[in-house]
Write a protein that binds this DNA or RNA. Sequence first.
DNA 1: AATTACATGTAAGCGGTTACATGATTGT
DNA 2: ACAATCATGTAACCGCTTACATGTAATT
Lengths: 178, 178
Amino acid sequence: MSLRIALLGLLTAYGSASGYDLAKSFEKSVAHVWQAGHSQIYPELAKMASDGLVTVEAEGARGRKIYTITAEGRAELREWLLGHDPTGPARSEVALQAFLVPLLETPEAVAVLERLRAHSERKLAQLEALWTAKHSAPIPEGTARVKFGNLALDLGIRQTRMVLQWADDAIAEVQARS
Amino acid sequence: MSLRIALLGLLTAYGSASGYDLAKSFEKSVAHVWQAGHSQIYPELAKMASDGLVTVEAEGARGRKIYTITAEGRAELREWLLGHDPTGPARSEVALQAFLVPLLETPEAVAVLERLRAHSERKLAQLEALWTAKHSAPIPEGTARVKFGNLALDLGIRQTRMVLQWADDAIAEVQARS
DNA sequence: AATTACATGTAAGCGGTTACATGATTGT
DNA sequence: ACAATCATGTAACCGCTTACATGTAATT
């Protein structure tokens, strides 16, 4: 269901877009929040159209279909945001490795934690680059595009910083008891 | 694949266990790290047995099957921990709401963020209770059971604290521009 | 005798990934 | 001509959720 919501959100922000455009968005701006490939997006848009949440406003070159959100779609998005309690079904590979790592000998445990640390560091650099890009870039044509996604990006950066700090502390702790 | 890994980890920590025992673990100790119901666990154990990763060591009362990890299973677990880069396929409902919340009017946005905040607060209380329980409880029979899972619990607590702090700041920011 | 907890399974369906498949337009 | 990018779709498969289904042992 959440893919549908993400699509409605993007259509609200962009005004209108094709499946191709939306797929590109999932590779870029929304990537750290939700992921979806085109093979999932196209059928979902078709279903949403038959449910009356979006309409094909126009068909451009190369069979390009331009979707727009309907009033019904806006209502559905609003209802989800206001009414849906996000109980993310705790399923994190990082947390699983954190859970299992004490089963290893100290040097191996340290190696795993250091890889986790390195991974976080790379991700942090990416997100911070995105942040500075967003905040130094001139305002693009579309109205809502500037601030949209900033709260989520902030959350992502904090998340990554936290994992980095945790990994440092975990390495120290594991090494202390060897 | 990660369910398999989680099961191997638990069997390593516990020495041996039935599917029922493992399902209970997924409701309790591992819950904040990975989730799985019995309808997923039983077939997976059967597959793992036919793959030689575990064996049915004994059959107890009520058809209870007691599984033990094999050398092959231990090797698989070790390989995953050392070799698998955890690229959690960023799919978080909290982050999605964070992303979309700027589309709402200020009072509604604040309401959503406050619900997120309240949710985090409840979760934090639960995890902290688990932490103090673990650290004040007398050491149980099994050897490895005490420290096992502490790193992950620490990660979960930090994670929840971070979301709480983020929600506070997000509320302030959204209210500032109204 | 009835209820609860123990204990194991199967089946339908959904969401998501990977791979397959096709064709139009633009740039070199 | 050739390659890259634009653009849309389908099919097989896997992991997970929900619901269905069955039976045993202990407690009240």
